[in-house]
Structure formats: C-alpha cells, structure tokens
C-alpha cells in the first residue's frame, strides 16, 4: 500500500443547461453560419474544426450575405447541406476554376474554395496553380490530412514519407511512391499570389492562429491584392490507423514535421517551408539551452 494521500472523489458539475448564476455566454455550440450541429464525420476528425473557423471568420468580417463557396469532393463535402453561405459544388479538383468564373462574374463578392489535399493536389493540381499564377482574387482553402479520407484512406500527393495509409501500409516509401508535394511552396512564390499560409487544428492555440490566417487571406481578397491560399492540417484518425485521442499529436509530429505551419507569403515577404522548419528547430534549441 502506498502512503500517498488518496485524491478525494471530485464532484462532477451539472452541464445539461446554461448556468443559473449571472454569466456571459462566450461561445455557442455551432457557428452562426452552420444550420445545425449534427454531421456524420468520424470521431476525432479535424475537418469540422477547420470549417467552424472558416465560417466564424466570414461572419465576423460581415461577409455572410456576400460570400460564394466552391466546394471540392471529400468528407468535408457533407457540410454543403448545413453551411449557410451560397455554395457551388465543383467536380473533383476543379474548384479553383469554378471560383475564377464566379469571381469574374461577381467581383464584389468574396469567393473561396474548400478542398482537400486529394482534391487539390492529386485531382486538380493544375487548376490551383494556374488560378494562383493568374492572380485571381479568390481564396483557396485546403484541408490537408495526407489521405483520401472519403474514399477509404489511400495515399495522396501530400502523404509524408513513412506515413501509413491504405495503400502504403508499411509507410510511404520515397523509392516506390515518390516524395510528397508541398503545395504551399508551389503557390507562394507565384507572381499572382499575395498571401499563402499553412495552419493546423491540432490544439486550441493552433486553431486560433489558423483563424488569423483565414482572416488575412480573406482581407487580401477584399483588398483585391491577388490570390490567397490557406492550407490547414487536419486530423484523420480513421485514415491513419491511430486512436482518436492520438490524432492531434500524430498530426503535429508526423505531418507537421514536413508541412510546417506558418506564413509563407504575405505581400512581398516570401518564406519557404524549409525555412519555417529551420526556424522552429532554432527556436526549440534556444529553449533547451540552460540559463547562465
């Protein structure tokens, strides 16, 4: 028997109704631009977090009635029935071209695409590259989990080396499968690109930083400065074969170690993913140095 004191049984508090004491409500179940909360995405999926953040930014910018979304094909497509903004469903990978048409016909609107890594990088790589190079005033949002989640969890062009997927059960092997494409590094240096950033939803502070990126991207579009792009790393525990509770850690340590988060392009300022990774490494090194 240990003689450590035993923690008292802490009482659980009622959480089935708003508090009766005077209190200010800071957050609602769902963002105002989502019609209801229910959805069929897997437990622990990161995509609803990214969608919540995007809808909040559109609402906070006062653009709810002035926004057209063009949606690709992936698990997130299920939200087309509950997102309360005007939406167009594009063919797999073609959303940036449809967005180009929408924006050219309705230049006063905010136009965004919502795509996954399979949709944007595998199915429609040329669409997004040309849209960025033309400097179209649209915002492309890509949810990156490194798998074709909706069709069973197969490898995509962004799957990182060593990552297990349905058709890379031993982990992605460079010799056999090739190397991942860092899509943000392809888009950021193009002349038509005004803003490019990579965020993540692996924890609450990361969600906050991602929200700022989405806001900067949509503000870039509103100013008419050119093409804007936000990639968001999202958990897919189902596709990765990891327990839901380990999804955020896996996302940050495995995908995030290759697709590093940060701003890659903001007006004339251009940073590569390699530089972001080096800066994160230097930062960690400095923190480990003993104080003298």
């Amino acid at each position: 028997m240990s003689d450590r004191p035993v923690l008292p049984e802490l009482p659980t508090l009622p959480t089935d109704a708003p508090p009766s004491e005077p209190a200010r409500q800071l957050g609602h179940f769902r963002p105002r631009l989502l019609l209801h909360e229910d959805h069929d995405l897997c437990p622990g999926c990161g995509e609803p977090l990214a969608i919540r953040t995007l809808l909040e930014v559109i609402d906070e910018m006062g653009e709810a009635e002035n926004t057209i979304g063009v949606v690709g094909i992936g698990c997130y497509t299920a939200f087309t029935s509950t997102m309360d903004v005007d939406l167009v469903q594009a063919l797999h990978g073609r959303a940036p071209s449809v967005a180009t048409g929408a924006k050219r016909m309705r230049p006063e609107t905010i136009v965004f695409t919502l795509q996954g890594d399979g949709d944007m990088v595998n199915e429609g790589l040329q669409e997004v590259l040309h849209t960025a190079a033309r400097g179209e005033s649209v915002t492309c949002v890509m949810l990156n989990n490194g798998v074709f989640g909706e069709t069973g969890g197969h490898m995509t062009a962004t799957t990182v080396l060593g990552q297990r997927t349905k058709n890379s059960l031993e982990g992605r092997d460079a010799g056999y499968h090739g190397y991942p494409i860092l899509i943000a590094d392809l888009l950021a240096p193009l002349g038509g690109t005004a803003y490019a950033a990579r965020g993540s939803v692996h924890d609450a502070p990361a969600v906050g930083r991602t929200k700022n990126m989405l806001r900067r991207a949509l503000e870039t579009q509103r100013r008419g400065d050119g093409f804007s792009f936000v990639e968001i790393l999202t958990m897919c525990p189902t596709g990765w074969f990891v327990p839901t509770a380990e999804g955020p850690g896996y996302l940050n340590s495995v995908l995030g170690a290759v697709h590093a988060t940060g701003e890659l392009r903001n007006a004339e300022r251009l940073v590569t993913t390699a530089e972001l990774l080096q800066a994160a490494k230097d930062d960690a090194g400095r923190r480990e140095e003993p104080l003298s």
């Binding site: 802490l10 009482p11 659980t12 508090l13 959480t15 708003p18 508090p19 004491e21 005077p22 209190a23 200010r24 409500q25 800071l26 957050g27 609602h28 179940f29 769902r30 989502l34 909360e37 959805h39 995405l41 437990p43 622990g44 999926c45 990161g46 995509e47 609803p48 977090l49 919540r52 939803v201 924890d203 609450a204 969600v207 906050g208 955020p248």
Partner: peptide, 30 residues
C-alpha cells in the same frame, strides 16, 4: 464530465469536432 475549476477559456469548444460545448463566464466567480 466537468469538475470544479473551469475558467471559461473556450479551448474545449475550439477542439470539439462535434460542436458539443457552450462556454460561459460567470459575472462573479463561483
């Protein structure tokens, strides 16, 4: 389940994929 000591920070709401949380801050701490 909630144990005593919530600060009303809203982190749970930001990370829940299934929109399960509403967050309140008391006017006077309890």
């Amino acid at each position: 389940e909630l144990l005593p000591g919530c600060t009303g920070c809203g982190a749970c709401l930001l990370v829940c994929p299934d929109f399960c949380f509403e967050v309140y801050q008391y006017e006077t701490p309890i």
